[in-house]
Amino acid sequence: MSVDENMVRRIANLARIGLTDDDVPGLAKELSAILGFVDQLSELDTQGVKPLTSAAEDKIRGRDDVVTDGGYAEDVLANAPEKDDEYFAVPKVVE
């Protein structure tokens, strides 16, 4: 599968990675090469094979419904690039 420049822009937009026009052709080539390499998977017949998402051996474990965390807004906000009082601040979002 090769990736054209439109696709590169589409993916970059989904991933919120800003690209310059100069970035696009090179990325299209690189991504196409990687996908070309990956395409050898299609040689394999995997019909009926159950996908394996994780090698973890245990079953999911849960917690009890008790409050054990939070209450440290200062720590949560300490690394914020921009904040206003107790809020994170970002460029205005228009809905």
């Binding site: 917690r63 008790v66 409050v67 054990t68 965390d69 939070g70 209450g71 807004a73 720590d75 949560v76 906000l77 009082d85 107790e86 809020y87 994170f88």
Partner: peptide
């Protein structure tokens, strides 16, 4: 997470990592 869900708390006070 183990943070509380109570309504009306101070901003970002019921937030875990």
């Amino acid at each position: 997470s183990g943070a509380a869900t109570e309504f009306g708390a101070e901003p970002n006070s019921q937030v875990s990592l």
